[in-house]
Design a protein around this nucleic acid. Sequence first.
DNA 1: GCCAACGTTGGC
DNA 2: GCCAACGTTGGC
Length: 154
Amino acid sequence: MNHWLIKSEPDAFSIDDLAKVKQEPWNGIRNYQARNFMWRDMKVGDLAIFYHSNAKPPGAVGVARVVSEPYPDATQFDKSDKYYDPKSDPEKPRWWLVDFELVGKFDEMIPLQTMKDDPVLSEMTVCKRGSRLSITPVDPVHFEYLCGLAKFTP
DNA sequence: GCCAACGTTGGC
DNA sequence: GCCAACGTTGGC
């Protein structure tokens, strides 16, 4: 099983929003590296740290699970959607996604600063300077350690 | 294929 | 609001 970190801006879609729906298509990803992780590497059952970006403070807020095979992101073909991509061919879709469901929300978020200050978690991609990728692989050791810090058992 | 200009992300 | 990092675009 692979482990991941997925970023979301809580103003757009927060972990509480994920709690309200059964499962959520992770749409709007328009970066090839992030797309490749969903399209090529994610498997049903994979676990992901849910991370709030552009938040005060930013940080890890819970755990989500991959619950679908990859399929084309419908928003790329919707002219009225902000993620519409006129260059994507419906015969050969450019953007793919998976669905996530909530596993659980941490009792207390682990702020990015706490992760950066931690000798183990500071190795995570999200802690590195200039890390903008919205989906990143996570070392299982870091995943377990972070859940431990949050007193959370997936 | 190079690279300058530009746009976006996201912490601070 | 600022700005560093970095991906994308497009002229050449």
